[in-house]
Amino acid sequence: MSPKRSTAAADIGEAAARKTAVALARRVGFYAVTCLISVFFALPLLWLVTAPFDASPAYAIEFPEPTLRNFETILSNPYALPSLLNSLILAVGTALFVVTGAALAAYALSRVRIPGRDALLYVLLLLSSVVTGTAAMVPLFLMVSEVGGAIHPVLGVDSHFSVTLVMTGGLLPAAIFMLKDFVDSIPPSYEESARVFGASPFRVLKDVVVPLITPGLATIAVWSIVNVWGNFLVPFILLRDADKQPAAVLIRTLYTEAGQPNLALLATFSLLYSLPVVAMYLFVSKKYGFRFHGGIKS
């Protein structure tokens, strides 16, 4: 090998080493930034998990003085556990309405050609944000109390059923929109095949379409439950009876005599309040293996 060649080889080696160093520095930088960001998001969650077990929690994360007193106190609150049950009733009821309604509507909208179908969907989607939006609360309250209450108390104020209907009205258009994408992705020949064998439209929906869009239905059910679980405004306005109020409304009452937020109770109840949602997510994710599709076809 000539000396010139070996210098060239050394140059190449040096360049490669520089390249590796740069790549390494980039990786270190990337992970440092990622860590910072995740700490930013993890701290509140960490507080949520530690504060309930702390005798005197503050706006800081510290190693707790371990105690279960907070749980004892919250469980002795006569409204705490029933409010979680109320949340569950509202969430599951709404999810049932939304899933059933959205499945029927999405199937029809996907398979039947009607003029202006897409425009209709977009208008519905736009208006749905109004139904449960803040601006609509006064007319909504009046409608439920004057019209609904006049028809039957079940449709009036202080009824879980009317809260469920209002929440369904707000969620249904977006649910239809999401589900229609799922239905659209099913080749029509499945249904045609079943029809030629003599299956009625409802039978086709039950035997063929619903099993194929189960991940979509699960997504919508979870999404509805999470939405209702976290909604404060609608039940706050439509439910006066403290016995009927869901957890989201109850949290507001957890104050000390001095009018300060009772951090110990707030944190404890928040933990109890968030556990069912986490459990549900894990269960559904395991059972249906769904990803959050949104409205985008995978």
């Binding site: 045609e192 095949s193 029809r195 003599g198 035997d207």
Partner: peptide
């Protein structure tokens, strides 16, 4: 109606129910 014609159809994509 298709179901009352006593025919069976095989589709190009076979349309076997995947579930």
């Amino acid at each position: 109606a298709p179901g009352d014609r006593d025919v069976a159809m095989v589709f190009q994509d076979y349309a076997l129910f995947p579930h």
